[in-house]
Amino acid sequence: MEFLQPTTWTEALEMKAAHPEALPIAGGTDVMVEINFDRQRPAAVIDLTKVAELEEWGTENGMLRVGAGVTYSRIIEELGGRLPGLAMASRTVGSPQIRNRGTVGGNLGSASPAGDAHPPLLSSGALVELASASGSRRVPVREFFVGPKRNAMRNDELIAAFLVEPTRGPEQFSKVGTRNAMVIAVCSFAIALDVERKRVGTGIGSAGPTPLAAIDAEEFMAGVLDESGLWERPADVDPNAVARFGELVAAAARPIDDVRGTAAYRRHALAVLARRTFTWAWDERRRSA
């Protein structure tokens, strides 16, 4: 196993170009488990923790651009107000030790359907910035996940950052696990209300081969809110509509039975999570209006 340790972003991209087989490592919360448990012996690893550029965040044309190496702890502390859904999800990641080390970039790189950052990135329509020695591109997160633990990256690319608009309305994240802390999602759900554009964003975790958006549910609920003029004058939403929203979220999932739960339970739980998180988000909208 070869250990590559670039200190600048340019150097990192050059190394990746020269060693396309190299496995990137940042916080190590996924990669190290693979190595410690002897599940993987990559020919090379490329350590990104010395690349200062990856730890920066800033704004760019009204979007937040957050370096792939920003940890969950920093997202909670530094970006909690602007990315509340992602911050809520970050709080559920592992333990303080894991949140101090794990990064959203790493989550995207592993592309696990259970990655906690994915549902809020989906619900808020984030972009993933990929870079290689020959240039960079931005991929909508909704097109980024292409299969179980597979993403749209080419093997000469690294994840530079994700870009997302600061919150445009109430956001929620909710995750089912069979322990009250430090648990991998049995299933999870994120919702983001974009009050200005009158859009409802969703993200489903751990209930399909990839993280998913519940597009029918989004359109349905946006329509309900629109038709009744509720975006402008927030009032009670018909409980039947909320229930239908839950059903549509459940229908969007493609879960399987596995060691963490059954497919049937995941669908059931997603409907509950969707109803509850929508209700909490809508309550917040009503309070703030």
Partner: peptide
């Protein structure tokens, strides 16, 4: 129940 995973209020 569910703890910090925010499943119920």
């Amino acid at each position: 129940p569910g703890g910090v995973s925010n499943t119920t209020h």
